[in-house]
Every structure is written in structure tokens, then in C-alpha cells.
């Protein structure tokens, strides 16, 4: 197990595993970013600020 050349330091995940974890991270950031943008637009429509 320990001499697996695929392992990534320091987590011990293999490259593919690390990439999968990273993909969840990226997806989450995208979804939450879009949601936040949308919520801000809607709030600005009903109660505008800086306006």
C-alpha cells in the first residue's frame, strides 16, 4: 500500500481520489456562487440599495 506511486502527499489519497474530492469542492463553489448572485439581484429588485 505504502509504495503506491499514485499517492499524493500529505493526504494519502491517490491522484484520482484527490481529483474527485476537488471536483466536489469546485461544484459546490459554483453552485453557491450562482445562488448568492441570484439572491442579491432579487433583494436589489425589491429593496434597492446604493440607489
Amino acid at each position: 500500500m505504502s509504495d503506491d506511486p499514485d499517492k499524493v502527499w500529505p493526504t494519502g489519497l491517490t491522484l484520482r481520489e484527490a481529483e474527485e474530492v476537488h471536483s466536489y469542492m469546485i461544484d459546490g463553489t459554483r453552485v453557491f456562487g450562482v445562488i448568492a448572485l441570484l439572491a442579491h439581484i432579487l433583494v436589489a429588485v425589491s429593496t434597492p440599495w446604493l440607489g
Binding site: V31, F32, V34, I35, A36, L38, A39, L42, V43, V45, S46, T47, P48
Partner: peptide
């Protein structure tokens, strides 16, 4: 589910014409 709920109250308020909407 979280995203939908986060947007929903503002969407409903805009839908019902609250404030400047």
C-alpha cells in the same frame, strides 16, 4: 435544496410586489 431555500423568500417577495418590486 439549500440554494432553493436561500433564494425563495426574496423571490416570493418580488413575486408579490413587495417594496420597489
Amino acid at each position: 435544496q439549500f440554494g432553493g431555500f436561500a433564494v425563495m423568500p426574496f423571490a416570493l417577495l418580488v413575486l408579490s410586489g413587495f417594496g420597489e418590486a
